[in-house]
Design a protein around this nucleic acid. Structure first.
Lengths: 357, 357
DNA sequence: CTGAAAGCGCTTACAG
DNA sequence: CTGAAAGCGCTTACAG
């Protein structure tokens, strides 16, 4: 291995120093923009240019304790059964873009690491990434609360979804507030009395928060809520279709409105209902959560709760960055959400002054 | 900075060694799966587990000359004027996903670094990434041929688009073959006699190759080709609309068919034509290049040349990886493309047995 | 199989 | 402002 780089003729700061006729300390100083005499600076820069020298990041990192890299870990599914899932920027992608944008502003780069749905040794993968970065951003459902807590002992960690542990920070959206608004719209504005919450992964903190808020608010307004294993999805469109198919096959009447744990699930639900000839929203209303880009292009356009997705990513980076640089600061960040009323809930096109930005 | 990590109680291999009652060499061996007595192994693993030790990637990289990281550099535009551009997985995103998938197979992680459209000091940014990675994948138009050649002196480089230099490798698609097929379809099958090539960035090797092939093939079949600065786009949808707007305003008749440098440009062209009430394909036929996910959803569905985009990314990684590990091998890889006939060229829905995969 | 020691390429007090 | 030297946390011949 080492010979691979040797063969490339790996240049070091020593080569530059020799060529410039100065010490390696001076080279380092010039390279890092510390004060030095103009002519020293000039000679070093010329040597760097002529040699095409690129300082080794690993050596820098080892020496000064900063890699200027944050790791992002997420699951990429073999779960895509729908064209829309394969083609669109989904929740994760938009968040990652936000992280990247914020990182760039601080001169950090982003180490992306997707793990398979059925990754055998997740812990090792994550440890490997942790070793290559100054801190980690973990998407939803990457690690248990204990797992996060343990990891956070050795490296700064920010989770998306969930809640802060003593050692880690968390950034999420206001699931509860969003769900409450949504339920009120369905129950009070539309008068639906029978509802269902089609859940995401059972081990997702976001999902649990949404479910709890949903059920509490619905009961408070006297609506019926179907729940239980029959309404267990997995955040994917395919999961949504399967739940609907089973519900229809069971012969039991469908609830008047189905609130899905996220937009992808709603996408699958709407496909499944359409295939069975059940009209949305006339027979069954459907809603989502996230407001991913495709939501507005579904037929009918999806009523959902908008999370500020890009901002979620940017905030996650900023929190992590201040942790890495020990500026310290906030623990838990909760970003506001917004009910976006389109047509899948039963509203007429563009009611309530719902603006498409 | 350093104290930031200290305070976290940064553990080293020495801590593990002490706790396990062995030397650091033994710890290292166990961690790297080299032979050692079962009880040594056990004690080390236990110490690692109990301490929550994560080996430092920078130190490993410095010591053995391998970071297990590849850098990917690309431009992310503030160029998005169309919803579709913001929402969809575009060419770059799909390629990056391919890179990531291939990297994961080799235990590598991917350092993503997007540079702004108007990045002031591109060279420094790229050098910084080069220092953090074992090798670089450069998207189209990141660096001039000279720039690439110089960079490749100090680090393995694979470019997407362009051609291999003595020191760098290149992976691209068969632009020429694709364009030839496309022109033949337009001229021979449809009988169009006046064509235009709406170009991408003038400094893009892919664009140049497509343009040359287009003009050569069109002339060979006796068709007229409009070109020159009036037909200069920039790979973006907005660029496409501007060219069309100007062309219409000039009062000169439009060509019968417009071949765009890529799908995004075609997207803009079709919007612009629609806005002026010019029907596609009846009045003017439009074609793209790439076959990005949205292409089939345009109205009318876009006839284009499909590149195996994911595969492009995977291949780029594989070539880079074999370069990094000195397995050596291929220089230049050219992947085959496929003419995808939809309706924007003037064909009826699903003619020619064109299959949607 | 194991341990002591050198070395990877930088940065940064410390003297001068 | 500059240079000599130590040290960052690993891996890997080299002896034993």
């Amino acid at each position: 291995m080492a010979e691979a780089r040797k063969a490339k003729g790996t240049l070091t700061i020593y080569d530059v120093a020799t060529r410039a006729g100065v010490s390696i300390a001076s080279v380092s100083r010039v390279l890092n923009g510390r004060a030095s005499r103009p002519d020293t600076q000039e000679r070093v820069m010329r040597a760097v240019r002529e040699l095409g020298f690129v300082p080794d990041g690993a050596a820098r990192a080892l020496s000064n304790g900063l890699k200027e890299v944050v790791g992002v870990v997420f699951r990429r599914g073999g779960e895509a059964f729908f064209q829309d899932e394969l083609e669109s920027l989904l929740f994760i992608d938009v968040i990652n873009r936000g992280i990247e944008v914020a990182a760039q502003r601080q001169g950090f780069d982003v180490l992306m690491s997707s793990v398979g749905v059925r990754e055998d040794n997740l812990d090792n993968r994550i440890a490997s990434i942790a070793g290559k970065a100054d801190g980690l951003i973990l998407h939803d459902r990457m690690l248990s609360a204990v797992g996060v807590a343990r990891l956070a002992e050795s490296v700064p960690v920010v989770t998306l979804a969930g809640s802060a542990s003593p050692a880690s920070r968390n950034v999420r959206c206001d699931n509860e507030g969003g769900m409450r608004q949504l339920v009120r719209h369905l129950v009070l504005d539309h008068g639906y009395r029978s509802l269902a919450y089609l859940s995401g992964h059972a081990d997702s903190p976001d999902n649990r928060a949404r479910q709890l808020a949903f059920e509490a608010e619905a009961s408070a307004h006297g609506a019926d809520v179907a729940s239980g294993p029959d309404w267990q999805g997995d955040y994917s469109a395919e999961g949504g279709t399967q739940v609907i198919a089973a519900a229809i096959d069971s012969g039991r009447p469908l609830p008047r409105a189905i609130a899905c744990a996220n937009d992808q699930t709603a996408l699958g639900v709407m496909h499944a209902l359409a295939r069975r000839g059940i009209r949305v929203p006339d027979a069954v209303a459907v809603t989502g959560f996230d407001d991913v880009p495709v939501a507005r292009h579904l037929q009918p356009p999806l009523t959902t709760v908008r999370q500020p997705i890009m901002e979620l990513g940017q905030t996650a980076f900023d929190v992590l960055h201040s942790e890495i640089t020990r500026l310290g600061g906030v623990h838990d960040v909760v970003l506001p959400v917004q009910l976006v009323i389109r047509e899948s809930c039963g509203c007429a096109p563009h009611p309530h002054g719902a603006q498409e930005p």
